[in-house]
Computed example of a mutant assay.
Amino acid sequence: MSTSIALPRFLRIGAGAVEELGSVVAQLAITRPVLVTDAFLTGRGHTSRLVEILSKEGIDAAVFDKTVPDPTTDSLAAGLETIRSHDADAVIGFGGGSPMDTAKALAVLSASGGEMGSYKAPRVYTGPALPIIAVPTTAGSGSEATQFSVITDSATDEKMLCPGQSFLPIATIIDFELTMSMPPRLTADTGVDALTHAIEAYVSRRRNGFSDGLALAAMRTIASHLRRAYRDGDDRDAREAMMLASMQAGMAFSNSSVALVHGMSRPIGGHFHVAHGLSNAMLLPAVTRFSLEAAVGRYADCARAMRIVADTSSDDVAAAALADELEQLCHDVHVPTPRSYGIAEADWNSRLDLMAEQAIASGSPGNNPRVPTAEEIVEIYDAIYSGANT
């Protein structure tokens, strides 16, 4: 049986690669893109820098910098108006996962119309869309290399996974120097997010040989560099390694799938406005312990790739060591529990059944080595609230 693989057509990777954005866009015969970003990057002068780079190639770029963390259907309206008024022929997602997800959604909606909810899984959309160029400024989401966009329904707080090759960037610029100013909290959350992508891609029921290689490589790199980047944001080697690993992990899960962590993470983000990477980090150790028995060998491979255990260690020992290490990593980078993050217990408990229902409806838990019931998902949510092990 064959495996279908989808990747960006162009990749520019390395220090200073952002300076080549104009030539990449010109090569694609794009002349009127909209640069989709956020107010923070505009305030720091980064947006004007990219507009200038594009202008030098004769490219007339408009700017939409009103993206919001964990973008919502309501937040897309102004972006669509910018694209229409500029008569745009492409979108450039510049920033973390939220600006890139916003750019992807705008690319599809501006070309095909409709409501964002009509593009959510299980539908896989491959229809018309504006070309997407991605320029990430964080090392974690992997959105620069994936065929997914995640948008929250403003009416229901449902975090919708919207898949399909129409959401895949045609070109990606990977310049680790853009991540050098990431604060420790963001470094940790996006780094654990990337690790989650790699682990879930490797243990997923939809895994394949192509995604396996990328996932294992990303795990090894993240294990040896995330703590370094967290402790010292000026560590260029660690920043560069994390940026490459994030892209590899993104390519891995985009061509495999995510699983239970992501299925449970999206409702946390949708209901309590917890950043995606952080909600993944809250869940990763507990979900891994829940899942171990169904894929001991696979989780053992992860531990060996991360050099947690010797290659000669038994699968049982290695898999258990992986779960221990994930708990220690989250402790070392100060991942909060939902309680310590500030979510009231009554609010948390009142939404458990709905969150479990939404997690299952996303389809991601069905890719997990151990497919949970709704009751088991509620038990995991209960366990992570105050930090208990599962």
Rank of each mutant, 00 (worst) to 15 (best):
G114Y: 07
A346C: 01
G342V: 03
A171H: 10
A359Y: 06
T72I: 08
S2M: 12
R307D: 15
G297F: 01
D234Y: 04
G113F: 12
A6S: 10
D38Q: 05
I377G: 03
T102F: 00
Y385N: 10
T72M: 04
E200W: 00
A61T: 04
L7T: 15
G297N: 04
V150A: 01
A188G: 03
V63F: 06
R84P: 04
V68Q: 11
R370K: 15
S350Y: 12
G297A: 06
M282S: 03
R298N: 10
R266W: 13
S254E: 04
A107H: 04
S112F: 15
S181L: 14
N280W: 09
H262I: 00
L80W: 00
D324T: 14
K104G: 05
A39M: 12
F10P: 00
L216M: 11
G58I: 04
A275R: 06
V24G: 08
A310G: 13
R207W: 04
T42H: 02
S313M: 01
A15F: 14
N349T: 13
L326D: 10
D237N: 07
Q358K: 13
A90R: 03
A321V: 13
L54A: 10
H273E: 12
I268T: 10
A134G: 09
M160H: 12
G117D: 06
H262M: 03
R304L: 08
E20R: 15
T126Y: 12
L11W: 15
S257L: 07
H276I: 02
G250D: 07
V34C: 09
A39Q: 14
I377S: 00
Y119I: 02
V317R: 12
S364K: 03
G127V: 11
S313Y: 11
A346I: 11
P131L: 10
A218W: 07
D60W: 11
L41Y: 05
P128K: 14
A217N: 13
G45N: 10
M243V: 08
T72G: 02
A217T: 15
V335N: 10
S256D: 04
T47S: 12
V309C: 02
F253H: 02
L186Q: 14
F94H: 02
R304E: 14
N280R: 12
G366F: 10
I92S: 08
L80Y: 07
L292N: 06
S48Y: 03
V261D: 00
E57F: 08
T196E: 08
F10D: 13
R185T: 13
P71N: 05
K104C: 00
R304I: 13
R298M: 11
L244M: 15
G95F: 02
G213L: 07
P338M: 02
S110G: 15
L195K: 01
T373E: 00
A319F: 09
A374I: 13
D353I: 06
D87W: 06
